[in-house]
Structure formats: structure tokens, C-alpha cells
Nucleic acid binder design. Structure first.
Lengths: 220, 220
DNA sequence: ACTAACTTGAACCTACTGGTTCAAGTGCGC
DNA sequence: GCGCACTTGAACCAGTAGGTTCAAGTTAGT
């Protein structure tokens, strides 16, 4: 996957600054792609925003397409890490199911509404025909997070806290109940959603989810 | 909204062929934009696909931007009409709530999975920053359809078939339960979803919805 | 038949942008 | 201090595409 020879012919190790430059380029690339979209984004501008000369960009990442790929992947890795941390936190407070689901739901929505997150979804949605494989890196509503959530739900199922069901489907629906409403209300991320509204959406989603999936009727 | 003088100085009426040309242009434009995206689409190709000379395109729709706008709006009108018809059908078979919801859900998903529908969502998602106002025309998960569905649900609520709730929220969640799973499974429309799978998703959505919203526990 | 509206094809202009080249420079290990 | 790897800036090339112009049709009302 790495595009550039990091070991030269003489075995000299790459300098410290090089990797910083690469990171700067990828960050700038993601920022510019986010604002302009793939086709409209201009490599010149990316180089400028990264504080780097244009040939340096082409030295690190051969193509515009490659630049896009790696920029997306890098950004997705960051975002996904944050989300996974939120899901891991589900393990802790195991007493109150509803409170726990609301907490994790709210956390997920906060990640989902992050500016970078919207930008990433916009880019992936737009360029899915040109870069079909990139879908796998999608945060929040991507396969990775859904799977992780399904695992958690499966445990809750075994523990008898939710009724017996297909955990994959339950996770899918839980995510949908969270992200769907926020999608329309925020107009694809162009209008900021108040923190309070996010809470409400998460609460409503959990309420519906509990009514449908809770083992004992504890939604009183 | 119309860009071109349809009445000339002498009051001559526009020819029959003119409107046909316009329609051909808009259709071709939507097709090409769908395939290529806004920036990558080339007006030359649109003209060619419409069987029309390039200046004719600029005669009817001044700009590339305007061309995009009108192409989207025209396509959205068509799609929305189909969907509304599906929702109207909810009025009929009023006996079996579950069957009715499954039917309309399945129908909605079929519209949602139409190739044109995917293309439209891709385009809107991608260009929402450049054309923020276009979001209002979005079919299925747009404001129009959600509102119409909410109206239906409100009636069901009054009739006592579903428990007392905010119909807007219920509609929002119903749509989310339908579209969310299909979104991830079809990889943003790049992978075809089998008819049978669509049925399953609709069934699962309705099941969860009924468990959460049905007045009497009729999900036995 | 006359004329105004519209269409056509092709050439044309202009701007932009992906990508390359090159000579001069810079930092760093030895 | 030497030399290698990398960076830089600027010029450069080539392809592409939005938009215009123009002369030559074509259509259809009167």
C-alpha cells in the first residue's frame, strides 16, 4: 500500500520530517477534498494548504486518485478509533440498560455529526462509483462499527437483557434509528444540530429500540 | 424559475418541438450527471446524449449549474410522484395493520432502490454544499414523503391502531428503519439488492415498528 | 412565400488543472 | 566537509471543458 521507497539504495533511513510532511499532506488533502469534492479539488491548493511544494505531493503520493485514497483512509482511521472507544465504553456500566444505550447512542451521534464525519460520508457517497472499495472504511454506519455493536448486543442477549434475536439485525436497526433522523434534520450536515436535539434523537431511538427488543417490559 | 423567454417580442408561441427538446436535454443531463457526477460531467456529452447541439443546451438552460438544478428537479418530481402514489395506497386496505405497513414499506424500498433514486441521492449528497436548497426535493427520505407518512400515521393513531405518539417522530423512525439497512447492505446502491432481501428488510422494520408503536400487543 | 424563432455544427477562446522537468537549495548522517 | 535524499519554486506541457460566436439551415405560423 505504501507508495514511496522508504529505504533508499544505501539503506539510509527516512528523516523525521518526511513522515510529518506526509501527514500534513494527507490532512490538507482531506480538508480540501471535503470542501471542494474530488473533481473540483485542485492539487495546487492541497499543496499550498499543506505548506508544501506540489512536486512533494506527487513524490509522496503518486496520483490524485492515490492521494484521495490515502487521505480518506487516514481520516477514517482516526474517526473509527474514536467511535470504537465509545462502543468499548458499553462494557462498563452494566446495570441500567436504557441509560447505557442512551449514552452510547448519544456518543455515536456526536461522532456521526462531527464535521469530518459528514465530509467523509459526502465524499464516499459521491465517489463510490469511482472508488467502490473505500466503502469498507466508513465510520459509524460502516460494517466495522455495526459488527462491533452487534457483538455487544449478542452479549446482552445471552445475559438475558434483551430478547432473543439476530444481533446483526438489531445492531443495524439501532444504528438506523440513530443516524436516520439526524441525517434528514441536519440536511446532510449542512445545518448544525443542537446538542440537546441530539440527546432527544438518541433518547427516542433507544426508547423505540427498547420497546422492540427489551426482554422484560422495563420501559415504564 | 423558467430561464428562457417562451414568448417572443411578437407574441409568437413556442413550437411543439421546443418543449420536447427541453425534456430530452433534462433527461440526458440527469443520466450523464448520474454516471459522472457534477464536476466530471461534460456538457458536450449531455448534448450528444440528448441528440442536440451544444448551443441549444445553453439556449434552454443558461448554465451548467442551472442545467443541474433543473435536471435534478425534474427527475425528483417524477420519483416523488411514484412514491406518493405508494403512500396514498395506504388509505385502502385498512384491516390488517401489519400487512399494510409491510406493503407500503416494501413499496417505499422499491422506489428507494431504483437506480435513478440512488443516483439522485448520490448527486445531492455530493453537491449539497454547492446546491443546499436542492435538498428539499429529495424523494423517499426527504421532507415531503416523511410528512405525508406522518399524516397517515396520525390517522392511525387517532383510530387507535397505534399508541399515542408524535407522528412525525414515528414516521421519521419508520423511514429510518427501512432505508438504513438497505443503505449499508447495498453499499450505497453499487450492489443490487435482491427483491427477497428487500422484503425481509421491510418485514423486519415493520416488526420492530409494530413492537414499539402498536396500541395492542398484536405482534404474537 | 415571408419572416421570426430556433437549431445546428464547427470553430474558437479562455481558464484551469493534472502531471513533469529542472536547477538550486536544505538537512542530515558519516 | 561530503554526499545523498529530499524539497522547493517556477516554468512548462497537454488535455479538457465551459461558454461564445457565426453563418447556414429548418420550422411553422400568417
Amino acid at each position: 500500500m505504501s507508495d514511496v521507497r522508504v529505504l533508499s539504495a544505501t539503506g539510509r533511513k527516512p528523516q523525521r520530517g518526511r513522515i510529518d510532511k506526509r501527514r500534513a499532506i494527507l490532512n490538507a488533502a482531506f480538508a480540501v477534498f471535503s470542501r471542494q469534492g474530488y473533481a473540483q479539488a485542485c492539487v495546487n491548493e492541497i499543496a499550498a494548504e499543506a505548506g508544501v511544494a506540489k512536486p512533494t505531493v506527487y513524490n509522496h503520493l503518486t496520483d490524485k486518485a492515490n492521494l484521495f485514497r490515502h487521505a480518506i483512509e487516514a481520516a477514517a482511521a482516526t474517526l473509527t478509533a474514536e467511535i470504537m472507544a465509545a462502543i468499548e465504553r458499553m462494557a462498563d456500566r452494566g446495570d441500567d440498560l436504557r441509560a447505557m444505550l442512551e449514552a452510547v447512542g448519544h456518543e455515536l451521534l456526536r461522532c456521526y455529526c462531527d464535521e469530518r464525519s459528514w465530509a467523509m460520508r459526502r465524499l464516499l457517497y459521491a465517489e463510490v462509483t469511482r472508488f467502490p472499495d473505500l466503502l469498507d472504511v466508513l465510520p459509524v454506519d460502516g460494517p466495522g462499527v455495526t459488527k462491533a455493536l452487534a457483538d455487544r448486543l449478542a452479549r446482552l442477549c445471552i445475559a438475558g437483557h434483551i430478547r432473543p434475536t439476530d444481533p446483526d439485525q438489531a445492531a443495524e436497526q439501532f444504528i438506523s434509528l440513530l443516524t436516520g433522523p439526524v441525517e434528514s434534520r441536519s440536511r446532510f450536515g449542512t445545518r448544525p444540530v443542537a446538542e440537546e436535539e441530539l440527546r432527544d434523537i438518541a433518547r427516542a431511538a433507544v426508547d423505540t429500540f427498547m420497546r422492540a427488543y427489551a426482554a422484560s417490559p422495563q420501559h415504564g
